[in-house]
Every structure is written in C-alpha cells, then in structure tokens.
Design a protein around this nucleic acid. Sequence first.
RNA 1: GAGCCAUUAGCUCAGUCGGUAGAGCACUUGACUUUUAAUCAAGGGGUCCGGAGUUCGAGCCUCCGAUGGCUCACCA
Length: 562
Amino acid sequence: MIRGAPRGRRSPRREAPSADGASLFEDGGTTGMDETTQGFRADAPQGAAETDLERSEQMRIREAKLDALRAAGQDPFETVRFPATHHAADIVAGFAGMEGKPVAIAGRLLGKRGMGKASFGDLQDRSGRIQLFVKVDELGEDAYAEWLKLDLGDLVGVEGTAFRTNRGEISVRVARYTLLAKCLRPLPDKFKGLKDMDVRYRQRYLDLIVNPEVQETFQRRSRIVRTIRTYLDERGFLEVDTPMLSAIAGGAAARPFETHHNALDLDLFLRIAPELYLKRLIVGGFERVYELGRMFRNEGISIRHNPEFSMMEVYQAYTDYKGMMELAEGIVSACAQEVLGTTRIVYQGVDVDLTPPFARLTMRDAVLAHTGVDFDALDDAAARRLAAERGLDPLKAATRGEVMNLFFEEYVEAKLVQPTFIHDYPTEISPLTKKKPGRPDLTERFELFIVGREYGNAYSELNDPFDQRERFAAQAKRRAEGDEEAYQVDDDFLTALEYGMPPTGGLGIGIDRLVMLLTDSYSIRDVLLFPTMRPLPAGDAGREDGGEGPAEGREGVEGGNG
RNA sequence: GAGCCAUUAGCUCAGUCGGUAGAGCACUUGACUUUUAAUCAAGGGGUCCGGAGUUCGAGCCUCCGAUGGCUCACCA
C-alpha cells in the first residue's frame, strides 16, 4: 500500500467531539483529496507494485481515500473513542419524546442515497438501523464533500437531532460526523446478502453485518444460555469448571482428541464429558453442581455434529432420574418462554408443544408401540434373530437390550416429534447408571427426544463402587475387542465412589441442539459462530484474503460460556 | 470415510451447439437540497476454484486435485 503520509500532525489521537461541541471540520482538512483520488490509477502501478495488482479496483479506491485522509492528518484509525448517547432502535422506539432532541450514534454506514446537496444514509448499530439525513447547509462545503466520499461499510459516529422526514421516516439530521474506521473491502450485496455458506462460516463477521437474522440467532443463543444459568442458580446449583485436559477421557462413549503436555511429557485427552469430575464434586459435598461448556469429540461432522460443541451437565444429590425429568422440562420450557415468549413453537414447519409435563414412555413400550415387538418376551438369541429378519445387523454377541436399543433407534427415534422422555434403558449401554430395582437388565435412565432428536440424557447415578467397577470392566473388555468408544476405566473415580456418593440425579442437555430448536435452525453450523472448517490451502487465502493468514496463531482463549 | 451437487466481477447470479465474458447491486465521473433497492447519463472492473488433457479453438468436454453444501455412515 502507498502510505507514508504524515501522521498525527494535527494531534496524535483524536477524540470524537461531543459535549463541548468542537467541530471536527473547523480547520478543513480536505485539501488534496481530489488530486489523490483522481490520481490513484496513475499511482497504483508504480507506487505499490505487485500488491496493488492483487487487490481489486474497489479496494484500491478505498485505500486511496484512506491515504488522502492520512495525508490530510485525518487518519480515521487514530480516533480512539466516540461517546454515543443512543442506539438506532432507541431513537425509533422512543421518537415521541425525542423529536428535535440531540443524539449521537455510532455504527456502520450501510446505505447511501445521494441527492446532490443533500443525501441520505443508513447507519447500522447493534440495535438495528436508522436513516441519516445530511445537508451541505448544516455540514459545510468541506465536510459535506468528505461525507460524499464515505464508502459503504465505513464506521462513523454522527451527532445531530432526531427528526422525521417529509416521507415520515424517523431519521437523524446530521450536524457533525466522524469517520471512526475505514472499511477497505467492499461489503456483500446489500439486498441479496451473503449466500456462500463457506464464506459465511469462515468470515462470520460479514454474515453478521449483512444478514440480520444471524445476529438474532446468536443473541437468542446467548439468552438461552443465560436462562439456563439463571434457572439453575436460582435453585441452589453451583456452577463449576472441571478439567478439559485429562489423562482419561471418560463419561461418554466417544473418541477423544489427543494432545500432549510438553513439560510433563504427558499425553492428554480433551474431555468428551465432565460427568466423572462433577460426580467427584457430589462426593465432596456440593450437592448441586453444574457445568456448561465445550466438549470435544473426535467424530464426523454433520448437520447436527461439530467436533466441539456445548453441553450442560447438572447433578443433584438426593434425587433420581425422575427429579431430572422435572428439571429438564423446566429448563427447556423456560428457555422457550424466555426467547420466544411461548412454549408452543414451530421447528422447520412442525408444531412442537414444549409445555410441561412431557410424555414419558419406557423404551420397551415405545418399541412395542411402533414395531409390535415386546422385548420383555424375548431372550438374546430370539432378539438377534428378529433383528436379522428385519435386515438389521446386530453384533454377534448382542444382548436383548442392545437389540432393543437398535430397534428403538431404527424404528422409534425419528417419530418422537413432541417432547418425550424415553426411560428404562438397557444396562449394557448405560455403564454409569443405577439398575432398576428388580430389573438388573434395565437402568434408571432417560433420554429426551424432540422432533426426532436427542436433547438430553439423564440417570439415577450409579453410586455402588462394586457395581461401577464391574461396569467399567465390561467396557474395558469391549475396548480390548476393538470398540474405540468404550469407556476407559477410571480408578480415581472409583476411589471417590468408595468414599460414598449420595443418591444423585444427573442430567446432560445439548446446548447447540436446544438453540437450533429455539431458533428454527436447520444446521448446527447456523448456531455456532465459527463452526469447524478445513483451513484453506496455503497461498490460496482465496476468497478470504490476499495477505496474511487470518487469525492464525491466535489460539481461541474463549470465554467460559459455551 | 462414500455418493451426488456446486465453485464465473467485491456480492447475487446468467452464460445456448465448444467459436472474442454477461446482468443486477456495488464502484468511478457528471447532474440533482426530503430520498426509501432514489433517479438520470457515461465509464471502469474477470486467475471463469487449481492443474493436466482432448481440440484449429475450452467457462462449457475428459481426468486429477482443493474447498463447501446435501445425503449416508459414526455420534450428542
């Protein structure tokens, strides 16, 4: 880029005006602009050589405008603050009491309608958009000439008065403005928005600028997460943070990501679930704990799966899985009420009623109702035979319970549209769950299904250390047989159980899926700001950037919310 | 991991039979002091995702590769 303009000649850091009413433009500062902008074509080939050839015509024009501003001592990037008094939506909503009153707002310029010596613009801030009205009479010749050179996407702060145009649109009559940052790249189409999914995910900021419904989705996501925290906090649950790095990835059936600690020369895993740590805290006496955060599972990517995803797990001493049903109903319906104002929602065109209580059905009854097969009346061999007859492919040693689960997933799951707790899961697929009294083949476990998807998973937590050791042993056997997702034995957790864990109910809720449900999002990527993507090949920053690799080398030290 | 589809100007998209690359928005210049996707006039802008092949000639046909979307598998 052609730079080298004298910087900070006027004052090293300009603060935008406001209270004292000092004009930004009292000393002009627009001289030289015309020569520079008109001369950019001549300058480009000589001055900036190759880099300019790579940039689009529109970028070179914008850079030339920036250079001219800098040459005039008006570097927009030196401005440090702009004290806005209002947001766009405040002015529109509260116009009755604001007409003629002074306002200062800041945001991105997303529309320009020039009319000669007057012009209109649209300013977008976090609250929405408002129209700006700019007149040469009020700004002065020089400042107005500068205004006309602003580009769509520039960040500006304006001061003026709230008023209504002849056509009735609530607007701000601009008395002064400050360019707060230059937008050097042209924005996506202002009406058609940004459609290319690749670009939308990789450059989410663009998606947020031009597709307003995307902002709405992520604001709603934030409110859902806050609602869950509030709901649990109000009921005496303590939010905690347990390790993301550990030598054993336990608490779920999934393949973990592997990593390495250099100083300890130790291989570690990224967590797949916080369960075993949270239960240690129940042993420790917290009685009510929860964690809401990111989990990592080394599995495929799909419309419902991302390698890192958010889950909430909550544990409550002295209750069981039925207590967790009430908690799950309460959380899901409270979130719907908070973000949609109702518990009767529509997901992808399907009416769903999230009003508690939700239907409750044992897995055996659900399978019986949908297939006519009563697994209580079968033994292992008969169950396997029946599966084979229907073209299912159970493992050779599959038990009755495993086959029943297979039937459930194959014939029932997709049909559970209205919220339904499916409970009494087979023991062999529930290694952390208490057995049902009198039915050692079943456990006190439920999963919550809505629109054919799983949203929650809960147990009466297994607290018998002998039983837990046997369950781990059974999992270890499977692991030895090649099941990479079978649980690893966690001796330290067993030790904790030997000190005594109170009877406890535990519940996990998939945050991303809940957000999908309540934002009517088709894909999980639409509720993740930055879904996992393959990096673009080196040297082909392509659609993204002509220069330095974007954001690489900055590890995501993300906030603790999920 | 497999199959199908997509990739053309900054964005959204056309592109016929293989014969000099098109539109709208955006951009530049000019006109215009209350517009609403402002309008009017003129103009500039292309690694047709990358590579190889077929052909006199490839955005288009063939092969290889990249990225994404969808479906399936795994999973929550």
